[in-house]
């Protein structure tokens, strides 16, 4: 863990892109916490992988960060604000700076690829511009740039999202997140619906996004091998609590046994 300098709590959450989670608790049903008072600090760089069996609260944890799920208790400091306490316009302004990549890509199927990318700008552009499909030139230029950057190429711009393969859709999903000029990118099982080869490509792309854009990327992933290969830091969760936190080479079999509760995770 020494290779891994954490910021002091006072500066965490104030530095751009750093995240400080304090005592985060989520109960969907009263008295049955899915997240048990989680405290974490994630500095403003690099790829962090959260591993753990399904149903352990990984997804709830990252959805609490951008408030797709409302935490029951706790603080989430990011960009000098406690995200857990934001509402309305302030919450939307904070969400603009947090990109999100989904397992099922969550593209708007009947819109073209370029329009899906521009959806990443919806928090920024005035409503009438989006409504009239008159996005600013700079946004359009950026969208075309990103099509190249995620390896799709500009020919894809006018293709409809529902004509793409899974891997292509996830590239669009990542480009949409980057369109937000994010200070943090969250990815919820971004490779779980993809074949092994495409999964590696998508992880490479997320790593590239993290280094090129200098943003921290937090990835929920159940594939331990991919997590170890691409992440600089691994957080192991079990039953709503963090049971491992450290660099990939510190992750031993007994840690995995603790995370996955048996030999299942070692396969």
């Amino acid at each position: 863990m020494t290779s891994h300098p954490h910021p002091t709590p006072s500066e965490a959450g104030a530095l751009p892109g750093s995240l400080l989670i304090k005592g985060l608790r989520k109960e969907y049903r009263a008295g049955q916490p899915v997240l048990k008072d989680i405290s974490l600090t994630i500095e403003g760089r690099g790829l962090t992988a959260i591993i753990g069996p399904s149903g352990t609260g990984k997804s709830t944890l990252i959805r609490c960060i951008n408030r797709l799920v409302d935490p029951t208790a706790g603080e989430i400091w990011f960009g000098g604000q406690d995200l857990a306490s934001l509402r309305g316009a302030q919450l939307r302004a904070a969400r603009r700076r947090i990109g999100m990549v989904f397992q099922e890509y969550n593209l708007v199927e009947r819109l073209s690829v370029i329009e899906n990318l521009l959806c990443g700008r919806l928090g920024y552009v005035p409503a009438w511009r989006a409504f009239m499909r008159r996005f600013p030139d700079a946004d359009i230029a950026r969208a075309f740039e990103l099509l190249d950057a995620v390896g799709l190429g500009q020919d894809f711009a006018t293709r409809r999202a529902d004509q793409l393969s899974g891997g292509q859709r996830q590239r669009v999903g990542i480009a949409r997140a980057v369109m937000q000029s994010p200070a943090l990118v969250l990815a919820d099982e971004p490779t779980s619906s993809l074949d092994p080869k495409t999964s590696v490509e998508i992880m490479e792309l997320l790593a590239k996004v993290s280094s090129d854009q200098a943003v921290p990327v937090i990835i929920n992933i159940h594939n331990v091998e991919l997590a170890k290969r691409f992440a600089q830091r691994i957080i192991g969760m079990s039953r709503g609590a963090v049971v491992f936190d450290g660099p990939p080479d510190a992750l031993r079999d007994d840690h995995l046994r603790e995370i996955y509760g048996g030999e299942g995770g070692l396969a």
Binding site: M100, G123, G173, A177
Partner: peptide, 8 residues
């Protein structure tokens, strides 16, 4: 996805 991007 759009809510997460901060869309009104």
């Amino acid at each position: 996805a759009l809510v997460a991007a901060g869309a009104p």
